[in-house]
């Protein structure tokens, strides 16, 4: 794992660091020693062919499943095999490849679940500090409404989340994660199944997040999007890190072209 401190400020250079991550399912290695660093305050794409282990890596990083071996650091803290709620409290939020909205809750409630350490989540506070609970709730509601306006979901605030379209659910997931004020945001194929107009908007939202200081790691197959908004690219193949760098540089890398880019370029040429 590389040295993760800026010499002048002492701030971590990398928001996320993984070393030799491994995960097997019934003997089959889905992640077979992934090693990479995600630079602080940048947008990093995680690309690779189907079955490369991208979603498994995201699940490992977010604590949704434990790794078999290897180490992970989140902004300088070793979070290897921490449960997801502890990692989330440290500032890592995520979205899912197939949207996982809280369907029985309204759109607004989906966002209101996200803030950490809410006073109203304690039985003691509900009955003995009701004013503090109400005040915090009002602040959260105001912030959630602003966030819904930003993401174009304001008019749907009182709809149950299960009633949203696929694209709206993708937006809701990002808005929900933003509501938790993350340091690091993992987006698992945020553009998948989304119409082209919305793809541009989601791209803009991600750039806005970067501007506000959030580090983004996104799994993405759409290389146009990667080229447009990502600063850095990690290529996974067969569960291993094949290469890292800028997409323009990776296009010249024969291993990458053979494993993934050639396949994508061919598909787009013949498609």
């Amino acid at each position: 794992m590389s040295d993760n401190v800026t010499p002048t400020t002492g701030a971590p250079v990398y928001a996320l660091q993984c070393q030799d991550l491994k995960k097997a399912f019934q003997g089959v290695l889905a992640v077979a020693g992934a090693t990479f660093d995600v630079p602080q305050g940048q947008i990093t794409a995680l690309i690779g062919p189907n079955g490369a282990g991208k979603t498994t890596v995201v699940n490992l990083l977010s604590g949704m499943m434990p790794s078999d071996s290897g180490r992970m650091q989140l902004v300088g803290t070793d979070v290897t095999n921490w449960p997801s709620h502890k990692i989330a409290r440290r500032g890592l939020m995520r979205s899912f490849q197939l949207s996982r909205e809280l369907g029985g809750l309204t759109v607004l409630e989906n966002l209101l679940v996200a803030p950490k350490h809410q006073a109203g989540e304690s039985l003691f506070n509900i009955f003995f500090r009701p004013l503090a609970v109400r005040r915090e709730e009002r602040e959260n509601v105001e912030r959630a409404l602003e966030t819904l306006k930003t993401y174009g979901l304001y008019d749907l605030r009182d709809n149950r989340a299960r009633e949203l379209s696929g694209g709206q659910k993708k937006l809701l997931e990002i808005a929900r994660a933003v509501m938790a004020q993350p340091k690091v945001l993992l987006l698992d194929e945020p553009m998948a199944g989304v119409n082209p107009a919305l793809i541009d908007r989601i791209g803009e939202y991600i750039l806005d997040l970067k501007a506000s200081g959030v580090t983004v790691l996104m799994v993405e197959h759409n290389l146009n999007v990667v080229e447009k908004i990502c600063d850095h690219v990690i290529v996974l193949a067969e569960g291993r890190t094949l290469a890292t760098g800028k997409l323009s540089d990776l296009r010249a890398n024969q291993d990458v072209v053979q494993a993934y880019l050639g396949e994508v370029i061919n598909a787009s040429t013949h498609g």
């Binding site: 977010s62 604590g63 949704m64 449960p83 997801s84 709620h85 989330a88 409290r89 939020m93 995520r94 899912f96 996982r100 809280l102 369907g103 029985g104 809750l105 409630e109 209101l112 679940v113 996200a114 950490k116 809410q118 006073a119 109203g120 989540e121 304690s122 039985l123 509900i126 609970v133 709730e137 929900r176 938790a180």
Partner: peptide, 23 residues
């Protein structure tokens, strides 16, 4: 209360609730 809302979030998907920092 927010506690009731968190209960319902866990009912709907405890994996998502965990990913949002709820134990």
């Amino acid at each position: 209360s927010p506690l009731g809302r968190t209960f319902r979030a866990i009912r709907d998907d405890d994996g998502v609730a965990g990913a949002l920092g709820k134990n």
